Simulated assay, not measured.
Amino acid sequence: MSAFDAVRARRSFSKVTDAAPSHDELLPLVAAAGRAADHSSLRPWRLIELRGADRERLGRAMNKADGEKGASAKPLRAPLLIAVVVSYRPSEKVPRWEQAAAAAGVAHTLSLLLDDAGWGVIWRTGRWTRTEPVAKAHGLRANENLLGWLYVGGRPEGKAAGPRKDLDAERYLTPMPDPR
């Protein structure tokens, strides 16, 4: 399948099975995703694997951020969560917004690679990404922000990726305005 076909076939899977890629299966995908556009090759990102009890700990941090007891079940929706972290690097050439964009590019590329490998994936964000309890649970440093999580699992039976409704590209690709 070409890259064009893989991108056109990609879809988000909000429900997945308990199957998940192993750490060793993730490594070549992460290495390939790391080839995403990255001005000055700063690699201003890192990824955190959450499996098993890690997901329960995240659920407790989410509830703590909301002032509630117990644990949110949201992180249990997939057997593997991959936290996407932007790790800002000192640079006079590359502003913070561009470093965050590079980290987002890695996350999106990884989601495409996981989808192409047959896994169900959805990128989830939410209000918790900027809360102290969730940052602490992930061990974020002062120079880091959480961009969200890739929820990864097996594709449910009969839920193959396939073509989606075409985007009206003419609506989003416009010429530079005439200055007159």
Rank of each mutant, 00 (worst) to 15 (best):
S22I: 06
H23S: 13
H23I: 05
E25G: 03
L26T: 00
L27V: 15
P28F: 11
A31F: 06
A32F: 11
A33Q: 02
G34L: 07
R35I: 13
A37W: 14
D38R: 09
H39P: 10
S40Y: 09
S41Y: 14
S41M: 13
L42I: 03
L42E: 12
R43H: 11
P44L: 02
W45E: 03
R46W: 04
I48C: 03
E49H: 04
L50A: 08
G52E: 09
A53N: 13
D54R: 02
R55Y: 10
E56G: 12
G59V: 05
G59L: 02
A61K: 01
M62A: 09
A65K: 02
D66K: 14
G67N: 12
G70R: 10
A71H: 07
A71D: 13
K74C: 03
P75F: 07
P75L: 08
P75W: 13
R77D: 10
A78L: 06
A78R: 05
A78Y: 03
L81A: 00
I82H: 08
A83H: 05
A83N: 08
V85S: 03
V86Q: 05
S87M: 05
S87V: 15
S87A: 15
R89K: 15
E92D: 15
K93D: 09
K93S: 05
V94W: 12
R96N: 14
W97S: 15
W97Q: 12
W97D: 14
A102E: 02
A103W: 01
G105D: 10
G105H: 05
G105N: 08
T109Q: 11
T109F: 06
L110H: 04
L113W: 01
D115N: 15
